[in-house]
Design a protein around this nucleic acid. Sequence first.
DNA 1: TTTTTTAAGGACAATTATGTCTTTAAATAA
DNA 2: TTATTTAAAGACATAATTGTCCTTAAAAAA
Lengths: 142, 142
Amino acid sequence: MFSKACEYGIRAVLFIAEQSQQDKRPNVNEIAKAVDSPEPFTAKICQKLARGGIILSKKGPSGGFYLEKDSKLTLADIVASIDGDAIFRGCSLGLPECSSEYPCPVHDQFQDVRNGLKRMCENTTVLQLADKLRKGETFLKL
Amino acid sequence: MFSKACEYGIRAVLFIAEQSQQDKRPNVNEIAKAVDSPEPFTAKICQKLARGGIILSKKGPSGGFYLEKDSKLTLADIVASIDGDAIFRGCSLGLPECSSEYPCPVHDQFQDVRNGLKRMCENTTVLQLADKLRKGETFLKL
DNA sequence: TTTTTTAAGGACAATTATGTCTTTAAATAA
DNA sequence: TTATTTAAAGACATAATTGTCCTTAAAAAA
């Protein structure tokens, strides 16, 4: 469904969000440990997310990655930033010209699934998910 | 969402189904042209589908690929045969132990989307889709 | 039987995704 | 100011996916 980079990226952002709520600013090493991902690859992904404005970063001692306290970030923002929006928009059979006027054989069937996915990702905020994490209701590794 | 191999595979099977309904048995060259896919790669995918019992094949002159007239094949069968069932079952964040007792942060949200996808793929038959193709209501390329 | 047509199979090549390492630049603290 | 900590950047390595090519085996037609 998502690329590995996107899986790690979502996990990383959720951890960063949860830490930010506690006024912490984890560095790559801490993030990689918390979400059980390869550290240098995680660094790459965090860089990309920071360049894309999805997360904020600060260099130097006690630096690291963080989110604004009132961030309105959604799952959809993270996914689009790493994997692009093909999963929300593209034809599931890869036809470049697929549309309702010129539909692929599964156009209608996938429309519903894709819209469901899109709506869910747009309506799920990172802060919501971080709350559940903090309460120990959900988990980021193992 | 799906691998390229799976996209080509679904398109190939739908073309084969539509041709089978007209008692034709297209060869790889005809399939690749009809669905606009690279011929040798398409051959590989058709081989795999034939080995998996998804489609039938016949060598020699006037040979090719075909389906039984009363095939009960669904989209889910094709996807599972090429990409496996991770898309229907696996954790969207890649956690190996994700479950309702030990859920990842997006477990509940994705449950619905994934179930929707699964149900749709299981309930959509290849013959249904081939009918629409034959009537010119849907398209396999461009 | 021979030739032709086709799928099957496997080796190979190219591309993309995943993952690592090293150097540089920024920021803080001493 | 200097040393230390950190992200940024880019080169590099590995693995997986995508794609090609060539040989073999099967089947039908001539």
